[in-house]
Amino acid sequence: MATTTDQQNIAEAFLAAREKKTPLTAYPGAVPETMADGYAIQDAAIARDGRRIGGWKVGRIAPELVARYGGNRLTGPIFADEIVDGADGAEPAMPVYAAGFAAAEAEVLLCFGTVEDRDHDIISVRDCIAEVRTGIEIASSPFPEINRHGPAVTASDYGNNKGLVLGPPIADWRAKDLVRMPVEFAIDGETVGAATMEAMLDGPFGSALFLIRTLRARGIAIPPGTWVSAGAITGIHEIRPGQRGEALFDGKIRVGCTITG
């Protein structure tokens, strides 16, 4: 899909705001009305950014907006230089846009192996997965109202992503009932959310299947080693510089980070 001049200008405005760390007080152009429009802006920004993509975040579209936007999920790139390994117990410092929007989310992370060029379903997509980890997605945008104008706007600024913390692996993930695994999230030691993946549509593997189909439609390859952050489990927890976030999976697997501006 060819991008319009306005879409290119929007992409450049987001890139400039991210680089200069300055907030956008208003959306920098015509608000995208469809997911195709949002992804066109995202693709223009990716092309200009030039960094290697190491993964993709997947988020849920609110049920009342599904009919309007034609689907129940959205995606955005996670750049390789913003993917940090916290599996050894270290708590990396993760930057956010202090004057924009910032949140942290407990998520299951799937690492793709080889994605064969064929149609997949919710069962066969598991064969594309080489590793499953716990983790935290950092959602942040220089536009404070990124999530208030619909999923196409969210998608237009990298899906509201600013990084990924890779937590410890789930060693027995093929045999484990991931959907019923209890997950908690705490900020500065206070629990702010607790849930399982039972409410996550068709679960983390459904997110992987959505991503394969969506990226193929956009002509984007999925090389081995690509991560997918499968969706917020306990909620989207707004967080500020100076705070500490920690996710607890299955009552025993911990992954944490500190937030910087």
Rank of each mutant, 00 (worst) to 15 (best):
R73C: 02
V179T: 13
G225K: 13
L215G: 05
A155C: 09
G235F: 09
I253C: 06
L65A: 12
D172F: 11
A26G: 10
S124N: 10
S140Y: 07
I10D: 02
A152L: 01
S124T: 15
A152K: 07
A106N: 00
R218W: 12
R148K: 15
V179P: 09
T25M: 12
T154F: 05
Y158M: 01
A152V: 03
G193D: 11
G86A: 04
V108S: 10
L201T: 04
T34P: 05
Y158K: 02
A90E: 13
Q8W: 03
A30W: 02
T234H: 03
I212N: 01
I239A: 09
T196V: 00
P168C: 07
E116T: 10
I259T: 11
G55M: 06
T34L: 05
M35N: 04
E107F: 06
D121W: 12
W173M: 04
T134I: 06
G70K: 02
E19T: 11
R52V: 14
D121Q: 06
A208D: 02
I222A: 07
D81Y: 02
T214R: 15
D6K: 04
F79G: 08
A2E: 15
T258S: 15
D49A: 00
A62C: 00
M1I: 14
C128P: 05
A103F: 00
R126A: 11
D157Y: 04
L109S: 10
G225Y: 14
V165M: 09
L65F: 14
R244I: 09
A2L: 14
E12K: 15
A139N: 06
G242I: 04
A104T: 07
G150V: 02
L166D: 09
I222D: 03
A67M: 10
R254N: 06
T3F: 14
R216W: 01
K252P: 09
P223K: 03
P151D: 08
G86E: 02
E137H: 00
A87W: 04
F79M: 06
P151M: 04
P204W: 11
I187V: 15
P32Q: 01
E145A: 15
P23M: 13
L215W: 10
S207G: 00
I136D: 01
D43N: 14
L211K: 05
C128H: 08
D202V: 13
R60W: 07
P204E: 12
R48Y: 12
R18M: 10
A221H: 12
R51C: 03
A87D: 00
D88P: 05
R174F: 09
I187N: 02
A155P: 07
D121G: 07
I41H: 00
Y69H: 02
I146T: 00
M200R: 01
A17T: 03
T258W: 06
T5M: 13
G100E: 09
A194K: 13
A67S: 15
A130E: 13
A103D: 07
R244T: 13
